[in-house]
């Protein structure tokens, strides 16, 4: 594919215009073009995104900012049930709080030196709060009464089976270990395959070191309306529709 055509096809791909044979032909050409293709795709991203600037610039409601910031600092863990993970988080919170108290006391004696320590501790505390909130969401899905367990099988050699927990009111959790890392510039994307209609994106992810996967998402679809979950390899940032054959698929039972 000549450079000018590949450039336009990058635009068309990012706009979601390609389907069928056009899409397959573009993907093959992009793979064959190597670094040049990646550069063209990045350039196209900046061009296509500019079209979004034609939308009116509209102030969101003021409370939305408050909701966002509150969501980043979840409520502290209280009355944790007697589970090892909950106790660990609670202990971590108390330990950091104790550390803050100590730092504050010493700050009276050497305020300038400890100011940096205090900042670092505050950041650590914020990180722990976020982690605690994340784990609370995971637990709320996994332990939900209506949670369905979906096993996603794969034909990828030596790749593991993944598991998903899906609860209508609380969300969708995908877990797994030893998952292979997608190539540079690529990402994994989880799809909900409805009983009718096109697949719906449920989020993009890259495994952590060691191949650990723990994706938590608030699914807009309901389990009873879905026939399967699938995971495909997609360009970084995700795709509007799957552009590669899903490597993992699991049926959603009743």
């Amino acid at each position: 594919m000549e450079r000018g055509t590949l450039r336009f096809q990058c635009d068309a791909y990012l706009l979601g215009l390609l389907d069928g044979e056009d899409l397959r032909e573009f993907e093959a050409a992009l793979r064959a073009s190597g670094a040049e293709g990646k550069a063209l795709l990045a350039e196209s991203t900046d061009v296509v995104a500019k079209i979004g600037l034609t939308a009116p610039l509209v102030d969101p409601p003021a409370l939305l900012r408050t909701r966002l910031l509150k969501s980043l600092a979840p409520e502290p863990v209280v009355a944790a049930p007697p589970k090892p993970r909950g106790r660990l988080l609670a202990f971590a919170g108390w330990a950091v709080a104790a550390g803050l108290a100590v730092v504050s006391y010493l700050g009276l004696q050497n305020n300038s030196r400890l100011q940096g320590d205090l900042t670092a501790t505050q950041q650590e505390l914020a990180g722990l709060r976020i982690e605690a909130g994340h784990m609370k969401k995971v637990l709320s899905v996994v332990m939900a009464r209506d949670a369905r367990i979906i096993r996603l099988a794969t034909s990828v050699p030596e790749a593991p089976q993944l598991r998903a927990f899906w609860s209508k009111p609380t969300g969708l959790v995908l877990t797994g270990l030893n998952m292979p890392m997608p190539a540079a510039g690529r990402t994994m994307q989880l799809w909900i395959v409805p009983k009718s209609g096109n697949p719906i994106s449920a989020g993009v992810f890259r495994p952590e070191s060691g191949g650990q996967v723990l994706l938590v998402t608030a699914s807009a679809a309901a389990p009873e309306d879905a026939k399967a979950l699938a995971i495909s390899d997609e360009p970084e940032g995700g795709s509007a529709q799957p552009t590669t054959t899903p490597a993992w698929v699991g049926a959603v039972g009743d």
Binding site: V48, G52, I192, E236, G237
Partner: peptide, 28 residues
């Protein structure tokens, strides 16, 4: 995970907003 060589921050935000909004529209 953001990298400038894959596009500007404004492009990243715009494409993410578009993708999420289209996903939401399709899902409903």
């Amino acid at each position: 995970d953001y990298s400038r060589d894959k596009g500007t921050v404004s492009s990243w935000l715009i494409m993410m907003a578009r993708s999420r909004a289209l996903d939401r529209a399709r899902s409903r």
